[in-house]
């Protein structure tokens, strides 16, 4: 595994156990001399904590938001993760792919958040855990392409439908609030959301693959 924790020279052999369980995935001992930096995977170039943060922040929030469906909770989870990394920057050494580590850590923390919230049944958490295998992708370019394709499809929606869809998905308004804001009925809002979802999913063909896979899971 790519994550290694360095033990202090004087107490080598003794595991450090104060690690936040929400974020730890897998640890391996490493007796090399500590390096106080994080590494970029491909180039091996040393990047600062701030660069590392800004490089992955939005992506990680999106991954958390996908699971918890709550903006503030997503921000908190990602911020806590980075605070944790910061507080342990002297003992964590990430030699390989920070993003891969971070995505899994965020995913686990988000799923734990759902379980602890008590609002979501354990079955449902398991289903959501399955879904996270498909989103987000770790390939930056593929992710960017898909985002662009979705936004292009959103732009092709009729104006009122696009407005309602964005008030719901971008601004996070409840159907009732959208209805009150636009002076239309809740049923109209629901119909427009339904039509938008059907259209966008048809336009973004990769989202259809999920059907087969979930189906496959269920049958096994």
């Amino acid at each position: 595994m790519v994550i290694c924790r360095k033990q202090q020279q004087h107490n080598a052999g003794q595991q450090m156990m104060e690690i936040n369980p929400d974020f730890i995935i897998l640890c391996a001992d490493n007796n090399e001399v500590t390096k106080w930096f994080m590494y970029q995977p491909k180039s091996g170039e040393v990047v600062s904590f701030e660069e590392q943060f800004k490089l992955h922040y939005t992506f990680l929030c999106t991954a958390a938001y996908y699971v918890v469906e709550d903006e503030d909770a997503a921000r908190d989870i990602v911020q806590d993760f980075f605070l944790y990394c910061w507080s342990k920057r002297h003992i964590i050494r990430i030699t390989h792919d920070f993003k891969s580590y971070a995505v899994r850590a965020i995913r686990n923390a988000s799923l734990n958040y759902l379980k602890k919230s008590g609002k979501t049944s354990l079955e449902e958490v398991a289903v959501i855990e399955n879904m996270t295998q498909h989103f987000p992708l770790e390939d930056n370019e593929a992710e960017a392409d898909r985002n662009a394709a979705l936004w292009a499809a959103v732009a092709r929606l009729p104006e009122q439908r696009r407005r309602i869809f964005l008030l719901s998905n971008r601004d996070g308004l409840k159907y009732k609030d959208i209805a009150a804001t636009l002076g239309i009925s809740v049923n109209t809002v629901k119909t427009q959301i339904k039509l938008a979802l059907q259209f966008l999913r048809k336009e973004c063909r990769w989202m259809n693959i999920i059907i087969a896979f979930l189906f496959f899971l269920k049958n096994n």
């Binding site: 903006e71 990602v78 936004w151 979930l214």
Partner: peptide, 29 residues
């Protein structure tokens, strides 16, 4: 329904990415 839910969640997350600008995240951090 699950498949549609997964698609809807994915759309919501992709559309919602704008809610998490990195500069603001960094300032808060």
């Amino acid at each position: 329904e699950l498949a549609m839910l997964a698609a809807a969640k994915e759309m919501q997350s992709r559309i919602g990415a704008a809610k998490f600008p990195e500069e603001e995240g960094w300032q808060n951090f």
